[in-house]
């Protein structure tokens, strides 16, 4: 009994399993932390911790959405395209005024919600495989973006938005605070709320949830919409981070978010894992890449090591899942 299949309860066996697992992860993390301190002291510089948290927070926010979709046995490969589009929307709609920024951020999030809703409708009501649907909407979003921008997105990222990633509390940037807040809110909704019960039931067995009166179609649409919205929000943070109008800024976040969620214990098959784990997965993945680069090894070795670590992590998790 290793996976956190049952929902976490403070006073139950399932909760003990979760606690054990968290302890295990923390233990491994502690060992790694000490080893890193000895081997790579520059890891603990304020500069590095800050850039680490910054990068992890962007991946973290989009991973939260991806985790939700994975929980209902889905997959969203359109998050990268949504993030890029979100950045373009922010750049083209916002002036330097706070009002303009607010409008632009709202528009970006609405765009994400819209794309997510489309994904959800196609998956839930048309029964198309999530992989196909979201790959298609990704192409649609990128295509429309190109039509709209002619490859040259107009505007600029307003200076006032840079604070989201450039300022913060000590080494912790505001974006990391945002990510943690979102993760905690989602966690409470999933673990304590009736919403979570419906989500986990649907992810574990659509048939059982349906027969119990859960409107699984609507629920799926909501989950995909939420994922789209979170991806758009991640895009907003990304725009603050990059500070440059790059029409393809989100590239790579689709697969990275899936890897981070799965490393964080969210099962591909649905119904298993949680958003806190997923957020930790995003942090872990970022740390691994950071350490690889910091260690100064050659770029080819980095590529191989990065791939190997993801494969080993996934294999380890899959093994535990099978053993259960």
């Amino acid at each position: 009994m290793t996976t956190t299949a049952g929902l976490a309860h403070a006073d139950t066996g399932a909760a003990r399993a979760v606690a054990l697992r968290v302890l295990g992860v923390l233990g491994v993390a502690a060992v790694a932390a000490v080893a890193t301190a000895l081997w790579l002291p520059q890891f603990y510089t304020a500069t590095n911790l800050n850039s680490l948290l910054l990068q992890a927070s962007i991946l973290g926010i989009v991973t939260l959405g991806q985790a939700l979709v994975l929980l209902v046995a889905g997959l969203d490969l359109s998050v990268a395209a949504v993030m890029s589009a979100s950045l373009v929307v922010v750049a083209s709609l916002s002036g330097e005024g706070l009002g303009g920024i607010a409008v632009a951020v709202l528009a970006a999030v609405l765009l994400g919600l819209g794309v997510g809703t489309l994904n959800g409708v196609l998956v839930a009501y048309r029964g198309v495989a999530p992989f196909i649907v979201t790959l298609g909407t990704a192409a649609l979003v990128s295509g429309l973006q190109l039509v709209y921008t002619r490859g040259a997105p107009p505007g600029a990222i307003p200076e006032r938005m840079r604070g989201l990633t450039q300022d913060g509390i000590g080494v912790v940037p505001w974006s990391a605070v945002l990510c943690v807040a979102l993760a905690v809110a989602l966690h409470v909704g999933l673990r304590r709320g009736t919403y979570g019960r419906r989500v986990y039931a649907t992810g574990t067995s659509l048939g059982v949830a349906r027969r119990a009166g859960v409107r699984t179609d609507l629920l799926l649409v909501g989950i995909y919409a939420l994922c789209g919205g979170l991806a758009a929000l991640a895009g907003v943070v990304l725009s603050s981070y990059v500070g440059y109008v790059d029409g393809a800024a989100g590239k790579g976040y689709d697969l990275d978010s899936v890897a981070a969620a799965v490393i964080g214990g969210v099962a591909f098959t649905g119904g298993k894992g949680g958003v806190l784990g997923a957020a930790l997965g995003a942090l872990a993945l970022t740390v691994v890449l950071n350490v690889l680069v910091l260690s100064g090894i050659g770029s080819h070795v980095q590529l191989i090591a990065r791939g190997a670590i993801i494969v080993v992590a996934l294999a380890f998790i899959a093994h535990r899942a099978i053993k259960k």
């Binding site: 520059q42 850039s51 990068q55 990304l238 590239k251 680069v293 770029s299």
Partner: peptide, 26 residues
């Protein structure tokens, strides 16, 4: 050459990589 890595022809990936290079203290 003291640091190297692939930025995937992407502004944001290249920026992340560069930041980490800067943080390496080299």
């Amino acid at each position: 050459i003291v640091q190297e890595g692939y930025g995937q022809f992407s502004v944001s990936d290249s920026k992340k990589l560069s930041q980490t290079f800067l943080a390496s203290g080299k």
